[in-house]
Every structure is written in structure tokens, then in C-alpha cells.
């Protein structure tokens, strides 16, 4: 991991409530440039809300988010071209072909040589055979690779991934993980990864944050957490935290 002087993500006292119901209860963390940070937690723990606030899709009730040194509440437009994301809550327009979708997003992200970039992505993500097929007629694995191609279209310095391998078969999921590892090394990109797949998190992440009821219940390097909890793997640590036996970090 290489750390730049400015963190990729700096979150301070970040909170979000919906009609009095607390989704995120004042959390603080940073993600260095080049770091892969895992965001774990059960359903309703506040992971998606946290990611949405980092992306600027949800306005925090309190606290601040800085991405690559930019205040997302006031100057998000300055940094949106340097980040990207993949999430199960969004989709690619189904009637457009993969090539058309990637061309549109390349235009939105200001990619200079669109044809070359799409050819590179098609090569990297094994999409050449589906480039001219409608996005809605692809298999789940192909759709995930296309969504990843969209997320990488601008070679982002920060990549936000919400369940990137959910509902994929083990082989395709493994292939995606390998590609993410390669991308991070090649670009020194920071990645914030929300996932329920603990094996995936153990493999990809330098550090993890475990959220529970909108708070950070624990955090650390996966191997350190496993050792500290006296468990065999991160999944057992996660279960300890989820069931209320976490240790004070």
C-alpha cells in the first residue's frame, strides 16, 4: 500500500438520520490512497448509507466527507471525474448495447480516446464478444463485468464497490476479484469495498471496518482482528461482532 499525503476518503463525525431513525451515528475513518478498505456489517448496519454519503447521493445529517481532499458537500463536482462506483442499486440502460453504454459514460467522464479505452476494457474484462449486445440480454456475470467496465471507464483513483460479486458464481466472482487486485496495483487506486463475503474481504482488503447499528463496532487489519478475537477467519469475527461479543477497539 502506498499512502499519498491526502487520504482518498476522510470521514469525520458522519451521521445520518431519517425521521428520527438513526442510520449512521457519527463515524470517523480514513482510507489512504492505494488502500483497499472493507466496510462490513449486517443488513441495516449503515454500510450503504455511508457509501451513498461518500458518493454525494445522500446528504449527511452531520459531519463531513472529504474525497481526495475535496469537501463533498460543497465541491463534489471537482472530484466526481476522479472517482467511480458499482452498486446493485443502479443498472445500465438495458436497451443500449454495451458499447453504447460505455460510450455514453466515457463522454460523461470526459474520457479522451473513447474507442481505445473501450477496446482496452473489453480486452481486460473479456467483453469483446458482448460489446454489441443489448445490456439487458446479458447473463449476471456479464452484467457485473459491464458494470465494472463502467466503473473503470475513467481509471478512477477511488473506486466504491457495494457488493461487487453478489449473486455471481464462484468462478466469475474469483475472476472479478483478481481483476480488482490487478487494477489497484496498476493504478495505486483506493477501493472502498462493502461486502458480505468474508473470504472476499480477507483476500482483497488491507483493513476492515465492521459496522453495527450505524456505529463502527471494530476495525483493523483482517489478520490482527482474527488474532485478537481468537478466531479462525474473518467470518467468525464478523459473527462475534454481529452477535454482540465484540471487543473494544
Amino acid at each position: 500500500m502506498q499512502s499519498g499525503s491526502v487520504p482518498a476518503i476522510a470521514v469525520a463525525h458522519l451521521a445520518k438520520s431519517y425521521n428520527g431513525s438513526v442510520a449512521v451515528a457519527g463515524i470517523d475513518f480514513t482510507c489512504a490512497q492505494g488502500e483497499v478498505l472493507g466496510l462490513l456489517g449486517g443488513n441495516g448496519a449503515g454500510k450503504t448509507t455511508t457509501i451513498a454519503m461518500i458518493m454525494g447521493l445522500v446528504t449527511p445529517s452531520a459531519g463531513s466527507v472529504h474525497v481526495l481532499g475535496t469537501d463533498m458537500a460543497r465541491e463534489r463536482h471537482k472530484v466526481l471525474g476522479r472517482i467511480n462506483f458499482e452498486s446493485p442499486y443502479v443498472d445500465m440502460p438495458h436497451r443500449l448495447t454495451v458499447r453504447q453504454n460505455l460510450t455514453v459514460f466515457a463522454g460523461l467522464y470526459g474520457v479522451s480516446d473513447v474507442k481505445t479505452r473501450i477496446a482496452q476494457l473489453a480486452d481486460d474484462l473479456n467483453l469483446a464478444d458482448v460489446l454489441d449486445r443489448p445490456s439487458g440480454k446479458l447473463s449476471a456475470g456479464q452484467k457485473t463485468r459491464v458494470a465494472l467496465a463502467k466503473a473503470l471507464i475513467n481509471e478512477p483513483e477511488l473506486l466504491l464497490l457495494d457488493e461487487p460479486t453478489a449473486s455471481l458464481d464462484p468462478d466469475t466472482a474469483d475472476w472479478i476479484r483478481s481483476h480488482l487486485e490487478d487494477y489497484r496495483k496498476r493504478r495505486n487506486a483506493a477501493i472502498l469495498l462493502a461486502s458480505h463475503n468474508m473470504a472476499e474481504v480477507e483476500r482483497l482488503c488491507d483493513r476492515v471496518i465492521i459496522m453495527k447499528k450505524g456505529r463502527i463496532a471494530d476495525q483493523g487489519v483482517p489478520a490482527d482482528l482474527i488474532a485478537r478475537y481468537g478466531r479462525a477467519n474473518l467470518e467468525e469475527v464478523f459473527l462475534d461482532v454481529a452477535r454482540g461479543t465484540e471487543m473494544l477497539a
Binding site: 458518493m55 454525494g56 447521493l57 463536482h77 466526481l80 471525474g81 467511480n84 462506483f85 452498486s87 442499486y89 443502479v90 443498472d91 445500465m92 440502460p93 438495458h94 459514460f105 460523461l108 467522464y109 470526459g110 463502467k150
Partner: peptide, 18 residues
């Protein structure tokens, strides 16, 4: 509405598009 039906609004609002 095409963007809503296609669930593409998040992609657009997270992009540099103002």
C-alpha cells in the same frame, strides 16, 4: 423517466454530469 425506469439515475448523479 427513462432514467428512472432503467435505474440509471444513480449512475448519472454520481458522474461528473451537473
Amino acid at each position: 423517466l427513462e432514467e428512472m425506469w432503467a435505474r440509471n439515475m444513480g449512475n448519472l448523479l454520481m458522474s461528473p454530469l451537473r
